[in-house]
Simulated assay, not measured.
Amino acid sequence: MGDKLTTKTYWESYYSHNHADKKHIKTVCGYYNDFWKTFIDSKNESSTIIEIGGFPGRYLAYLSSKFKLLPTCLDYNSDTSQIEASFRIMNVETYSVLQKDFTKYKTPQTYNYVLSNGFVEHFEDYNHILDLHVDYLAPKGRMLIMIPNMRGYIRFYKYLVDYQNLKIHNLKCMKLKVFKDFAQRHDLKVIHLGYFGGFPLGVHQKSNLFQKLIYKGHRLVFKYVANRLLLKKPSRFFSSSIITILEKQ
């Protein structure tokens, strides 16, 4: 398919620094612990999990270590060293890495858990990409999909200070209705669907003086005041993510 909004080179450059640090992994992934507990049935040890677009592997390594899962990472990046390092640092000894293009690969097996984080929104035909996820899900299996939310006020902020990052995301998929319709198409039970997180302050490009002032102003407002409120009451205008957990009937 030719509808990718990013390239392999982009992702290899984006994650060029080593992310296999245990403290960093626990901090980043632990932020979502309440969702992981809903997603994973901790009673079923040695269940299988696959992450779609899993590079550099930190979320998959974290979940596999925490819940004693058998992980598979599917990603088309040519460098698997960071994925393997993430597993090692989290003491996960048994794992698989599939260097495949998700849009073309046909899975020979299904998994108890399917994780997709920051993947769907990088395609024009996001509905087709969502539909392909279902091929990986075993009966009674669960799927967690997380994408950034760049609509509402966030879009205005990104346009001013992070436009290069904004334009490689498909904002059309960043609506709860997209996931409600997806669940309905495939008769999936919706366990959770909603917005989550504080305001996404991060900037992925060099900033001029004007942009730095905008960033610092927003940082003062959100990091020290508003984000505390957003974590208690998420907003479609200001919260950073959309998260859904679905179950196959």
Rank of each mutant, 00 (worst) to 15 (best):
232 K>H: 12
224 Y>C: 05
32 Y>I: 01
233 K>W: 11
83 I>T: 02
125 D>K: 14
197 G>Y: 00
170 N>F: 03
149 N>A: 07
171 L>Q: 08
189 K>Q: 12
96 S>G: 04
114 V>K: 07
224 Y>S: 08
230 L>R: 04
176 L>K: 09
163 Y>S: 10
132 L>S: 11
105 Y>R: 09
78 S>A: 13
26 K>H: 13
144 L>N: 03
114 V>S: 02
221 V>F: 14
198 G>H: 04
115 L>A: 05
19 H>M: 14
126 Y>H: 09
21 D>M: 07
30 G>F: 02
52 I>L: 05
97 V>P: 03
46 S>V: 04
58 R>V: 10
173 C>N: 06
113 Y>S: 03
129 I>N: 00
166 L>G: 05
166 L>I: 07
180 K>E: 14
237 F>Y: 13
173 C>I: 12
122 H>C: 09
147 I>C: 07
23 K>Q: 14
37 K>T: 11
7 T>L: 11
101 D>I: 10
16 S>K: 15
211 Q>P: 01
80 T>C: 09
66 K>L: 11
65 S>L: 04
67 F>C: 01
215 Y>L: 11
94 T>Y: 12
124 E>I: 15
244 T>P: 06
184 Q>R: 10
46 S>T: 04
195 Y>F: 09
167 K>W: 05
169 H>W: 01
17 H>N: 13
234 P>T: 04
78 S>T: 13
158 K>C: 04
211 Q>I: 05
150 M>L: 13
95 Y>G: 10
198 G>P: 06
61 A>R: 00
50 I>V: 10
175 K>D: 09
74 L>S: 02
161 V>P: 04
27 T>P: 11
75 D>C: 02
124 E>A: 13
153 Y>H: 10
186 H>A: 01
219 R>T: 14
201 L>N: 03
43 K>P: 01
180 K>L: 14
42 S>W: 10
100 K>G: 12
223 K>P: 02
58 R>G: 06
179 F>L: 05
22 K>W: 03
226 A>I: 15
4 K>V: 06
233 K>V: 15
92 V>D: 02
73 C>M: 09
83 I>Q: 03
153 Y>Q: 10
7 T>M: 05
175 K>Q: 13
